[in-house]
């Protein structure tokens, strides 16, 4: 079994997130592994954990990111959780990619891994990147690779070359299957990501991160990055701070005060 987990390097949601020149400020001080990709890593590691020892030994989980060099933070964290290999795709030509450029680069990374070794049975992603909250890259990677995609999985089973997923959408509770190779995104409800143990944390420090350029992946520089993007950010401005909160301490009249506020502001 060979699994690629797509992990994104994003600003920490607890930090002061900002834009610089219409691009997300990737200040390395606040950059981190997209938290939702920990669920993807956990799902991949569990699939391997469930294999018999000899099959596990012949299997691997590869963390793959499209990011500038600072993105190693996300890959180190992936090593801490237990991935076997980590690859970063970095190129000036990729800066300013839209969803399609990112998906094309991720798909090319998967193909390159396959050219160098065994086929990739599964590509697993998080349900969303917490910076842009797009939730579209998994479906686009699948489209680029020409493979089936099942997204937002809550329950994941892999057996006999078939992926079986249970999921809850806004509309329905569903069970879906797809033949491998496939692309899978996992919801935050799928699992609780493991805490790295001391041994893995120590080992992660010295593990090698492989770096590929756009040319290494055969990507046409005109089709990715800002050059290939079909949308262009034209402005990004912080919203004005909300006015100071009107705070009432309940001493028996708190509910009435709440009702009066809503009525006064014609909210009810």
């Amino acid at each position: 079994m060979r699994i690629v987990v797509a992990v994104k390097y994003v600003p920490d949601i607890n930090a002061d997130r900002r834009f610089v020149d219409c691009r997300v400020d990737r200040d390395p001080g606040v950059g981190t592994l997209n938290e939702l990709d920990e669920n993807a890593l956990e799902a991949a590691l569990r699939i391997l954990d469930a294999l018999p020892e000899d099959e596990r030994a012949a299997s691997e989980v590869v963390a793959l990111t499209v990011a500038p060099a600072d993105g190693d933070v996300a890959l180190r964290k992936s090593f801490q959780m237990g991935v076997d290999r980590a690859v970063r795709v970095t190129d000036d030509a990729l800066a300013g990619s839209d969803y399609f450029g990112t998906a094309a680069a991720l798909a090319a990374g998967v193909r390159r891994l396959e050219a160098d070794g065994a086929p990739v049975d599964l590509v697993i992603t998080g349900m969303a990147a917490l910076d842009g909250l797009g939730s579209v890259v998994p479906a686009l990677v699948a489209a680029e690779l020409g493979r089936p995609a099942i997204t937002l999985a809550k329950k994941v089973d892999v057996a006999d070359g078939t992926l079986t997923v249970g999921r809850e959408t806004d509309e329905a509770s569903e069970t879906l299957t797809a033949p491998l190779p496939a692309v899978l995104s996992v919801a935050d409800t799928a699992n609780t990501p493991r805490m790295p143990n001391f041994k893995l944390i120590m080992a992660a420090r010295t593990k090698q991160i492989e770096e590929w350029s756009a040319a290494d992946l055969g990507l046409d520089p005109a089709a990715v990055g800002a050059a290939g993007a079909r949308t262009e950010a034209v402005s990004a401005t912080p919203r004005p701070a909300r006015p100071e909160v009107e705070l009432v301490v309940d001493k028996g009249e708190g509910g009435t005060a709440l009702a009066e506020y809503l009525i006064r502001n014609e909210l009810v």
């Binding site: 909160v245 009107e246 705070l247 009432v248 309940d250 708190g254 509910g255 009435t256 009702a259 009525i263």
Partner: peptide, 25 residues
């Protein structure tokens, strides 16, 4: 920190009182 209006209190007291006042209004 992000509220326009807030009540520091127990929701089991505050919400029923507010609901009753809104219905009365």
């Amino acid at each position: 920190e992000i509220c326009d209006f807030a009540v520091v209190g127990d929701l089991t007291d505050v919400l029923p009182q507010a609901a009753a006042a809104i219905r009365a209004h």
